[in-house]
Design a protein around this nucleic acid. Sequence first.
DNA 1: TTGACATATTCCCGTATGGGAATATATTAA
DNA 2: TTAATATATTCCCATACGGGAATATGTCAA
Lengths: 109, 109
Amino acid sequence: MARAATTSDAFNAVAEPRRRDILNFLALQEKSVSEIVDALELGQPSVSKHLKVLKDVGLVDSRREGRQMLYRVNAMAIRPLYEWTSTFERLWRHQLAKVKENAEKKANL
Amino acid sequence: MARAATTSDAFNAVAEPRRRDILNFLALQEKSVSEIVDALELGQPSVSKHLKVLKDVGLVDSRREGRQMLYRVNAMAIRPLYEWTSTFERLWRHQLAKVKENAEKKANL
DNA sequence: TTGACATATTCCCGTATGGGAATATATTAA
DNA sequence: TTAATATATTCCCATACGGGAATATGTCAA
């Protein structure tokens, strides 16, 4: 077995930094491919390929408007990632609480 | 340029499902390598290699106890992932709110 | 039609992957 | 010492990556 395909799930799709850049850029509103190309300073074919990966895993949707294709984020598809990381949030809060506690103990010596 | 190294950041390290399995397994308490091997039903060399990746990006720490190596999660290292996904949480909440709104509208016809 | 614009796809290649098998290293016990 | 246990590393290979260049497809305008 080799490395899992980038299209196998949201975790793999989002591992690529440029794809996160694209999602960030689309977060506020839908954009055309060329707007993304301009914003990210990346080749048009690369952007189209990244968008295909994102679409395959459901992270973006698209619609045609004239000659342009408009892409928008499907935020729901990021939810599994959020849920998974949330299970660890409790752990680091606990960790931070202990650090704080120790600091206060020291201060009160 | 090829695909980014699995050790380049937490996003890439966590893209591999077995590594998420390992982190899940370590979430509650530290475990030895052989405990992980038994739990995940994966070869020992594979587990050691996954642990190396996780350690390289700071997702786990380890300490020796006799012949065993005990690994534990460093939850703080997952924080960037949580933060990034959180920026999209607002978006899907908004989406869900609209769905609910539409459903209620229909119900009141 | 033809041409121009916007996007998608194909082809190329250097690079790294994850698993298994075999082997190396570290630690303890006898 | 030597043997046994626990873990790490190396070597192998099939696979897919991301980017650039070139090309194909799709849409509108004249």
